[in-house]
Nucleic acid binder design. Structure first.
Lengths: 350, 350
DNA sequence: CCGAAGTATTAAACCGGTTTAAACATCACG
DNA sequence: CGTGATGTTTAAACCGGTTTAATACTTCGG
């Protein structure tokens, strides 16, 4: 690979000038510029990204840490990543995936991070990733609330989870549902904690007594029940315990499908007997299936884009004032999996 | 941030020694090592990844280029990425996402790639990404056949698309289907080309005449019909043209759902009237829906892992002989969306 | 026509590590 | 005690760019 000295020599100018031609940080005369570019083309020269990073102290890459496991992530993650990558590319930034298999967090990788900043998706209560970033002085933005904000000079992008749960409950209670079951995501992420809190609060507002069967958490990703969570809980609560639940709120579409399976197996149907609400799922797919699924549009792609914007501010790439927190709005997408509780009786009387 | 000189000074040794303590490339005495590590801890020192890369000429990162657009990618991509990230982490490599919004491919990014190698998913017939990598002398592995193999010293990981189509056709013809419709992926990727060829060949083997309505390609990602492709074609062919198609092969689950919608709308049902086969989809979800969908297990995660292995060989990280091409096996996962053609009559007679 | 101000260019220092070649220490052996 | 073998440590060169401070070349007002 040709290097800057080769170009400089052949073009009859100094390294500094060649550098300026490419970085455009200082003006160069047209004559020189064209000569340099011509030589570069002949030599197939491209500035070495690493060498440049070393002195500018910018890698032009941001890290994206996604809590994973040995499993796939969801459509939400997809769209989120898309939002991140697309927005980052606007500022000339690349995205480094950091789906750390949890055990490895403990090895401080024996070297600094080759990134200028990071986006942390779904922080947990005691998140090692955050400690690590903070310790290495990597600026970061979290997507989802973070505990001990002050400690980290934290910036957060989030949905308004409290509002989301209130909206959902208002919607379902408006349909007459009072015995609802919430199949939340994993117990540890702050987002899921916020949602449970929001759910409980919403119930209070509607003067509905919170019962033990109403809130459940998805088991850990390595658990056997991870995939069958929705099915299992539905069978257990509605089948074995015979709770008269009339509406189920599922955290994601996968869980919802699993729930639907159980519902069918129990001889019920959606939405006539039981309404089903999906918080976070693939809207286009939810539209295609039968019955189509009512759910929330969390705008994952927008979450991704906003988190990049926030990070760019932190990095000084974007200027001007900006708030430390950014809330991305979410709206209910009404389809056909939720209906008034009395609809069954109606259809019977018809 | 503390640098190596600081550590060297405080520990009373030379830079070179400190370097050796961290890189472990040369032995150091226990006394010195402990002193250095102790000082490093006090100073919160971590070797600078960039500086190291500059001289070792290794970034310990590989690029992953996924053809995207402004849209989400699928579960296949998910699992593929997971396979890549997980396998790469074994060798200490990180993954840099390179979902280049197509226009930008043309800007050679004004700097070399900060990666040691790349994985190209779904190459197209004339793939600019490949030309670019080749030109920048970045070793790469493609997932999916590549045209002009020889030109690029190419290594490929792939499913046996010919065999896949043959298996599917054998399966469906075994059920008595002879009028099948194949809703393929986009026209440009080499994978989709291979599949069409395989399909045509399989039809010949069964002495079924290929008719124009039997093969379709998904429109471009920016097209209005991208999302409704399955629905549109089904309505057009089965509804308007009244072709007596008895089986539909859909490239992905999204398309399959869309097809199912159309089938229902036309007053048919799956699988009684029409069998539905999904080539590439989310198996767990396909299991949950009603009717559950029969499809192929392409082992995306394994494809990802294998492509990393191949790349590691190219980079000299893994040693020993290895073939230039790697075929990942795929098997039919039988569920309930495909059945014999005469099943309708049977059920009527019951 | 001179001095000031502005524009291009350059040589040398620098970024923070690794690597090389030489120096130094230690120890065993004849 | 000299010699060689082995094992550690070091000073200096190097990786391939950017940046600084000095220098040369223009332009322009008075």
């Amino acid at each position: 690979m040709a290097k800057i000295d080769d170009v400089a020599r052949l073009a009859g100018v100094s390294k500094g000038t060649v550098s300026n031609v490419f970085s455009q940080k200082r003006p160069t005369s047209k004559t020189v510029r064209e000569k340099v570019l011509q030589v570069s083309r002949e030599l197939n020269y491209v500035p070495n990204h690493i060498a440049r990073s070393l002195v500018t102290k910018k890698t032009m890459a941001i890290g994206l840490t996604i809590p994973h496991g040995n499993f796939f992530f969801s459509v939400f993650h997809n769209q989120f990543i898309n939002g991140v990558v697309l927005e980052a590319s606007i500022y000339g930034y690349r995205v480094l995936l950091d789906m750390i298999p949890v055990e490895e967090v403990k090895t401080p990788s024996l070297a600094s991070y080759p990134i200028d900043g990071a986006i942390v998706l779904g922080p947990t209560e005691e998140d090692e990733r955050i400690d690590l970033l903070h310790q290495n002085q990597v600026p970061f933005v979290t997507v989802g609330k973070i505990i001990n904000e002050g400690l980290y000079d934290a910036t957060t992008v989030n949905n308004d989870n409290d509002q989301i749960m209130r909206d959902i409950c208002d919607y379902l209670v408006g349909f007459g549902h009072r015995n609802m079951m919430f199949l939340n995501a994993g117990r540890h992420s702050t987002v899921s904690i916020e949602r449970t809190e929001g759910f409980v609060r919403a119930l209070q507002e509607h003067e509905i007594e919170l019962q033990p069967h109403m809130v459940h958490y998805k088991p850990g990703i390595h658990s056997d029940q991870y995939m069958t969570y929705g099915y299992d809980e539905t069978i257990r609560i509605l089948g074995e315990r015979k709770e008269r639940v009339t509406a189920i709120i599922a955290d994601d579409d996968r869980t919802a499908f699993s729930v639907m399976n159980a519902i069918n197996e129990l001889g019920y149907s959606v939405p006539d007997d039981i309404s089903l609400f999906v918080i976070c799922g693939d809207l286009s797919m939810m539209h295609q299936v039968t019955p189509s699924l009512t759910g929330m549009d969390l705008q994952p792609s927008e979450l991704g884009a906003q988190s990049v914007k926030q990070l760019m501010h932190k990095l000084g790439v974007l200027e001007g004032e900006y708030p430390d927190n950014c809330i991305v709005s979410s709206t209910i997408i009404e389809r056909s999996s939720c209906s008034p509780v009395y609809s069954r009786n109606e259809s019977v009387s018809t």
